[in-house]
Design a protein around this nucleic acid. Structure first.
Lengths: 133, 133
DNA sequence: TATGTATTCTGTAGTAACTACAGGTTCAAG
DNA sequence: CTTGAACCTGTAGTTACTACAGAATACATA
């Protein structure tokens, strides 16, 4: 059996603050947890994983709706194989585009650090290089 | 000289809606544009680039504050070389982490599409695979 | 030139996703 | 048995939009 955690511990381990956890619960993106006699929330290690996942996704620009759609793949929804493939493929496409944009950005930023390290004050054509015509 | 654009055209070209453009202006992340006699905003191709950049960054999970910090590198702020290097390096670090998280996600998603394509209904251990212990 | 329709203007109100209290209860260490 | 930390619910504030309302301007065409 897995060790049970109070909300504060979940918050610490998943790096999401307490009120956000309660907010996610209200939004239905986190399931209603078990409670102690006195009404305190009880979590376990799976909740840490799920919440960390949500947190990372948010940091990558996914909306809560998109995250719900990703999580629905986990939550044993009654999807057909075709539906799963469609949802998944569309997310994969989105992810690829994000990666490519970030890689461009990385290249430019590293070049700037490089140039700057040599004492140059770069002219910073960052926008041009990233997304210029 | 560059052709001048009304706000609607800027919105179309940068894929950002009109009220968001005005919102960004109020927040100071877009400079106050020139105006016509009658008070209508006038933009040019540089505004399209800047705004597209902002839009993409938002989609990648950067906050407006972070984007301002990135843009400050462009806006000929009076930074020392050391400051530029620090700001840039920190963003580069962040970008690398985002890329790595997205690559993990891509791998898992593609594997799911693959499995699904073969007629399997996958058991979708997506969270486990992505961010599991 | 008149007129209708599209575009823009300012300003305010609503939404999504948090974040920060306020005021009260519970737990646990000394 | 007290006292402080952690938790509870509920509400109000913040960020980043988004959607009107109501008025002015521009532009096409009859």
């Amino acid at each position: 059996m897995t060790k049970s955690l109070p909300i504060g511990e979940l918050a610490r381990q998943s790096d999401v603050n307490i009120e956000t956890i309660r907010f996610y619960e209200k939004q239905g993106i986190l399931p209603n947890p078990a409670r102690t006699e006195s009404g305190r929330r009880i979590y376990d290690q799976d909740d840490v994983k799920r919440l960390s996942f949500i947190h990372r996704c948010r940091g990558l620009g996914f909306s809560l709706k998109e995250i719900e759609s990703l999580l629905s793949l986990v939550d044993a929804g009654d999807y057909t194989c075709k539906e799963v493939r469609e949802i998944t493929a569309s997310h994969a496409q989105d992810v690829k585009q994000k990666i490519s944009a970030l890689q461009k950005m990385e290249t430019v930023l590293e070049a700037m650090v490089e140039r700057c390290g040599k004492g140059d004050v770069p002219e910073c054509p960052i926008i041009e290089e990233l997304f210029g015509s």
